[in-house]
Structure formats: C-alpha cells, structure tokens
Amino acid sequence: MSGLETIPVTVVTDEPLTQTGNMVPILNEIRHALSHPAETGESTTIDLGAIPFGPGEREELLATLGKGEIEATLHALGESLIHETAYPGVWIVTHRSPQGGELTTCIEVTRTPSLLSTPPADVSEAAAALKRYLQDHSARESA
C-alpha cells in the first residue's frame, strides 16, 4: 500500500497558481511570425523547453492554441507528433523517445513543418526503389 492518498493533506488556495505571464508574449511572437510565411516564406521555431513556465502555464498555452485539421505521427527514434493548431500556420511538434519521454516540444510557424515534407534524397531513392521493383516485376511476368 503506497498510502499517499491516505495522508490527509489538501492544498487550499483560492488564488490562481503562479503565473510567469509568458503566455501572452509568446502568443504575440507567434502573431508577428505569422506574417512571415505568407510574405517571405520564412518560418519561425520556438523551443518551449527554453522558456520558463509556471505550473500549468504551458498546458494553458497549448490549450489556447487548440487543435486544427491536421495531425501526423512520425515513427523514427520513437514517436513524434506533429499537429496544426486552431490557428492555421501554427504547428506543434513534439518529439518523444522510444520510451515515451518527451525530448522537445516546439512551436513552428510555417506553411509546412520541415519534417512533413520528404527529404529530396529520399525522393530519388524512392524513384530508384520503385524502378527496381518494376524491373523485378516485369522480369517475373515475362518469366
């Protein structure tokens, strides 16, 4: 029995928990960054690990940004979740280790997060692989 829940301690406070007030500046930074992808194609990345947050503040920021239409999962070195927020052009990219621990969470302000587009070298390799497959296939057919 761990018994932690049997210890009669409750935190009674009617005031909101500690706030750094960092949420609004970040939202403002995102707002400024949103003017770039349309005009210059330049994208902005904000590493949330480098910003001090009070308890619950980060969750509040993510909840404020909400969820949009697209969600994608990358399976490499553990899962990475990429989703667009309710504000189109604002993406949340969370990298997790194979054990499920969070490695980084970034806000990307861009039209397409770089991880979603296929690396050019992979595209050439894919063409080569498909060509190999078709050659094998036609060889099997003719045999």
Binding site: D47, G49, A50, L74, L77, S80, H95, L103, T104
Partner: peptide
C-alpha cells in the same frame, strides 16, 4: 533530423 532537433534543444 529529429535527432538533430533534440540535440539542438
């Protein structure tokens, strides 16, 4: 790239 992003962080 994910490895590099985590390393940068």
């Amino acid at each position: 790239m994910k490895f590099c992003a985590a390393t940068a962080s």
